[in-house]
């Protein structure tokens, strides 16, 4: 559980800051796209696959462009420039920031995960976290062999964001299906195990400057709050419990930079930092707990 504990000790804002900022960002992006069709204010057109901001700045999904190129079409320069802009942005902030700060599916899977913790549901589905890379390969293979974007016929990521932005009614069926899958079949089954979009973006994370670091890791009191809320909990322990002198940066490419660990930790172990800042703070045991 995120903490009643951390909320009591740190206050509501400090223990929910990054979560609220992320939700705000995710909803603001959807709202920005809906402002045009609903209110006639056209700041941005298109959807997360490809868009045009203020009629000048193109953005497009590099993973989708890769599929297009595998299926045998060289996109025009507008899509390529848009893809390059998005690519550079995520190389800087970490590819999987897309997952936790932009992708609307994150709201669904975080919601399911929250309910699991509240109600004590423990789905038994046990998928390998490597499957997403297999699916990434499969989507590109399907494009190559089929000569068209076969994966995009079933890709829940593009399907749901497009449906939300273009006012589909049937998309709510897909939303419900994904929610129930995450809630009852496999915990974070889609986002942390299967999603090839996330797998692709994790490849962009490899040398991202923006990272979560653990400068006060020696203050850890083993409460496991971070472990419970983290979508990729396997990446925490090697760093937090790392030997003296080892890197304090959570440098795994699957880290989504969601910052929820920063929120829930009462010991202020985590903070956003850069990958170059490997400084470890000396912790005074008496003051910290």
């Amino acid at each position: 559980m995120n903490g009643p504990l951390s909320a009591r000790q740190k206050g509501f804002w400090a223990s929910n800051k990054w979560l609220l900022l992320r939700r705000g960002n995710q909803l603001a992006i959807l709202a920005l796209f809906l402002l045009g069709p609903l209110a006639g204010i056209w700041l941005i057109k298109g959807n997360l696959s490809a868009s045009l901001f203020l009629d000048t700045l193109p953005m497009s999904d590099p993973y989708l462009l890769l599929q297009v190129m595998f299926s045998g079409h060289l996109p025009e320069s507008m899509a390529l420039i848009g893809g390059l802009i998005v690519l550079i942005f995520y190389l800087l902030v970490g590819g999987r920031s897309y997952c936790s700060w932009v992708c609307p599916l994150n709201i669904i899977t975080d919601g399911a995960s929250w309910l699991q913790r509240r109600w004590g549901i423990q789905p038994r589905g046990n998928l390998s976290r490597d499957l997403r890379f297999w699916l990434l390969g499969l989507s590109l293979l399907l494009a190559l062999m089929g000569g068209s974007l076969l994966w995009e016929l079933v890709n829940p990521v593009t399907l749901i964001q497009r449906g939300l932005i273009y006012g589909s009614v049937a998309v709510w069926g897909a939303v419900l299906a994904l929610f129930l899958f995450e809630l009852l079949v496999s915990q974070r089954g889609w986002c942390s195990h299967l999603c090839p979009t996330g797998a692709f973006y994790s490849l962009l994370t490899l040398r991202a400057p923006l990272r979560v670091s653990t400068p006060r890791r020696s203050a850890c009191d083993d409460c496991l709050d971070c472990f419970k809320v983290c979508p990729e909990p396997q990446i925490i322990k090697p760093v937090v419990k790392g030997e003296q002198g080892s890197s304090t940066i959570i440098d795994s490419s699957v880290c989504t930079n969601c910052g929820r660990c920063i929120d829930v930790c009462n010991q202020h172990v985590f903070q956003f930092s850069t990958r170059f800042n490997r400084r470890e703070e000396p912790v005074n045991e008496e003051n910290s707990s």
């Binding site: 497009s60 999904d61 998309v171």
Partner: peptide
């Protein structure tokens, strides 16, 4: 089908709301 990004920019630019994106089902 190999080239279309399914972004709907053509739909948004159509002044007569003629174009639409194929929905689920």
């Amino acid at each position: 089908l190999a080239a279309c990004l399914r972004c709907g920019l053509c739909v948004r630019e159509c002044p007569y709301d003629t174009l639409r994106l194929a929905d689920l089902l």
